[in-house]
Simulated scan of single mutants.
Amino acid sequence: MAFRGPKVWLWRWRRNPLKRRADSVETWVVLGTWLVTVLAGVLAGLAATQSVEQGLARERVEWRAVEGHLTEKAPGTAAEHSSASTADRVWGKVRWTAPDGSSHTGQVRVRPGSTVGTEVTVWTDPQGHLVTKPATAAEAQLRADLIGVLVGAGAALVPFVCGRMVCGRLERRRMAQWDAEWAGFDPLWGRKTWADGDT
């Protein structure tokens, strides 16, 4: 095996009589990989963040809170009504009227033991379909940032891994070339360079 010495900072960019064509190719592959990795990560992350922010902002504008009414008694007892937290709520069947006047029904979370006719606030899209409560501006910003980071990291991983694979292949080829050339010197090292009678 060829001897591998310690790493030297920016060695690929330094002049060296032992530098081969493969070293120069690897230099540009490494540079290109880092540039594409950074650009892909940043651009994909920003695009994802902006897309999520716009989608959530559109939801805050278009989705509306409307009053619905329970059509059947909610599971549970009335004694649990006052102490029930959001996590303890149960599913109840609710009917509401869309902006176009059409009637809709669906399942929403309500307090246990709520009676028929109890008013319940539900969120609907422009077509009157049941949706979740839209995220606040702060929640939307946090969600968009997190998604942007994840998408950016995923996008950056692709060129980085590809670049590492190419560099690994170049490294193996370079080491094989070194091994072959060092092997050619072995017979020369075994020969004497002076006459047998010399001291």
Rank of each mutant, 00 (worst) to 15 (best):
H129V: 06
A44Q: 01
W96H: 00
A65V: 11
A65F: 10
P112Q: 10
V110Q: 14
A153I: 09
A155Q: 05
K73E: 15
V52M: 07
Q54K: 13
V61E: 14
V120Y: 07
T136L: 02
G152Q: 07
T136H: 03
R64M: 10
G113Y: 13
G128M: 13
S85G: 12
T124M: 13
A135S: 05
G101H: 11
G76P: 14
L157W: 15
H104R: 13
A144D: 03
V149R: 09
L146A: 14
L70W: 03
G152T: 05
G76D: 14
A44F: 00
A44L: 00
G68V: 09
A135H: 11
V52P: 04
A48Y: 02
Q50L: 10
R111W: 14
R109W: 11
A48P: 04
E72N: 07
H69A: 10
K73F: 12
A47I: 00
V116S: 09
V66S: 00
L70Y: 06
V108A: 06
A40W: 04
A156M: 01
L142S: 12
Q127D: 11
A48F: 02
Q54Y: 08
L150K: 08
A156N: 00
H81C: 11
S83N: 15
I147P: 13
A65T: 08
V116N: 11
V90L: 08
T86F: 05
T49G: 02
H69M: 08
G76F: 14
R58W: 00
T105R: 02
T97S: 05
S85W: 02
T115L: 15
